[in-house]
Design a protein around this nucleic acid. Structure first.
Lengths: 215, 215
DNA sequence: ACCTGAACACCGTTCAAGT
DNA sequence: ACCTGAACACCGTTCAAGT
């Protein structure tokens, strides 16, 4: 069975998940696939292109709720929740999504569906751009922070906030620590979504009638 | 003049800003400082520790508004704005803050001041934790996204969203592109802050009286 | 078309040695 | 205490060669 772009990208993702982002090298990946490092260059012009393929692999894991399955607001919220869920399944790989640029066709296709949801909510392009960034940046930042708290990252020092908060000299940080443990992060994330989606519902032109009726 | 931790960290930050994160190597940094790579190990046990020092250098740049200078809400908003401002001054270095873990004394000191602001707004530890993460993750995600849009990152492909949006096959992405150009990013960020701080003001126990009076 | 193997110009870090 | 220099086990990538 010869190598394929998809097969290589999947193997790269597995290697990153198991051994960390820094452990991915063309030589090690080649060894995993039973091939010399240089064989990979026949499928990807550079390591950067391989990383782009890994990013697309991650995006593909985020299932987009069908348009007729739920209301626009619920669709968007489900998507954001799944995006963070993907982050938690791939802690070391998720950094790629935040650190590298989205510039591929599949990334644009992903954006298109999200922007369609904002259009369904009645927003024009300008408002869609702003809400898209607000919610998207929150999702991206949450993914990064929650991943960092779960310490699967390479050269990880023990997380003091998690393991010995009583050792921390700052009283407010110490008091907050129990509410930012790994077990609490889901609730913290949902709280953020509650705030953002309440504001979004309030602002969405398409929900104007609904709001009046419910008052 | 012998080397110092601070001097090395500043030189490392300058090197990252000028040539990108991947260009920072112990050998190149040593060369800049007129010293062999191994001399640096006398001041930092590993490259990771050096990167932690660079992160602290970045944090030190974010000036914290004095407690008596403005109202708690304005203080917090000013701080978040300055945090993103720092990101825009150090595009390639900012990735460190999002990708690496905050686990140093100075990072905790930074958190402590922010948590004090939430306490000033009347929040208990649990609520402070949630608002801290909501606003912090938005700030962090915004910094990353805005930095990526300004394309100072290494191995940068030209940003299609910025340079030839008319080439993009997806109509909604194309329509949104003009509202996400570099010139628009400040306004997009401010929009996010408007939404978040309106909700925060609404929720803050310490502002309850003020709200009643203004109605 | 697909893969190998040697080579080039790099890495972080160890270790023993210099002053 | 502070720095050097050689060495080790790695990198990404080029290039010529094999099938």
């Amino acid at each position: 069975m010869p190598l394929s772009r998809q097969g290589i990208a999947l193997a790269a993702l597995a290697l990153i998940d198991e051994e960390g982002l820094e452990s991915l090298s063309m030589r090690r990946l080649g060894a995993r696939l039973g091939v010399e490092a240089m064989a990979l260059y026949h499928h990807f012009p550079s390591k950067g292109d391989l990383l782009d393929a890994v990013m697309e692999q991650l995006l593909d894991e985020v299932e987009i709720p069908a348009r007729d399955a739920m209301a626009p607001l619920d669709r968007l919220r489900a998507l954001v929740t799944r995006y963070r869920g993907m982050a938690l399944r791939h802690p070391p790989a998720f950094i790629l999504l935040a650190a590298r640029r989205f510039n591929t066709e599949r990334a644009f296709a992903f954006y298109e569906v999200i922007l369609e949801m904002f259009a369904d909510l009645g927003f024009d392009a300008k408002q869609a751009a702003r809400w898209f960034r607000l919610i998207g940046n929150f999702a991206s930042g949450s993914g990064m922070a929650d991943v960092a708290s779960r310490e699967r990252i390479a050269d990880a020092t023990p997380l003091r906030l998690e393991h010995d908060p009583e050792q921390i000299a700052f009283p407010r940080v110490r008091a907050v620590a129990p509410h930012l443990t790994v077990q609490s992060l889901d609730a913290v994330f949902e709280f953020g979504l509650d705030v953002l989606f309440a504001a979004l519902a309030e602002a969405a032109p398409a929900l104007k009638g609904l709001r009046r009726r419910s008052r």
